[in-house]
Amino acid sequence: MRIGFWGAILLLAAPLAFMLAFFAAPFVAIAFNSLQDPDGGLSMSNYVRLVTDPYYLKAMGTTLSIAGWVTLITLLLGYPLAYFMVFRVRKRWLKRILYILVVTPLFTSNVVRAFSWIILLGRNGFVNDLLIWLHLTDKPLPLLFNKVSIIIGLAYIMLPFMILSVAAILQNLDHRLKDAARDLGAGPWSTFFHVTLPLSLPGIVSGALMVFTLCVSAYVTPSILSGGREVVMSMLVFQQYATVLNFSFGATLAVALLITAFLLLAVYHSARFAFAKARQMRGNHAA
């Protein structure tokens, strides 16, 4: 049975209305607010302040670099875990338990998890005690209240998102393709890099997108684990809204962050597109 034109409109109407009411409309209001100067007139002064002050650009850089590192780390940790769960674990019940274990941390508040890292990463914390005991260092390393602690805290929170999106793709991968590659003489590594990895790219892409965007907008974890020594955009936005009470500059920071993230995603997508096209061409030549 096909859904008719009006049927499709009807089905789309609800999510569309929801997005319009709770995302588009507030965003327009915020964007408009960001163009207001303190006297309520329209001006670009907030944006000029943002672009001309290296402090805000640096905060933007910190935010993006933290999100980039977390994406890379969750990919490097999450991919092997997802691979293991999908291909190596044969028993169904064990697989289920592993999925539950991956998801369980999501049920705990980020606040609690950030505070746990303070205890673990502190001067007298577990991690430093362990490093000293292993004679890897003779005095405690500064692991807390810097970029390192923010990245560790966020990577821990984001890992399940990466594992789940990669595992979802690996799960549906046609196993016979791997067997075929092995049959045709490809070694395990060659099979992985030429068959499994390219086929799982959609999972990596969606996982990376999710992790990156969640990191860019994260507030609780950076604000607790930065100890105020590092500043990310969400903290500046909060400060403008909640303590300086300059709502229009807060809006400017938020809009600038969103635009930058969109631009980066656009670059990412066009690079991927170009890459895929190049591969296709190469494939055609080989054929």
Partner: peptide, 8 residues
């Protein structure tokens, strides 16, 4: 408080 507690 956590900072004092952990010796930071």
């Amino acid at each position: 408080n956590s900072g004092f507690q952990t010796g930071e």
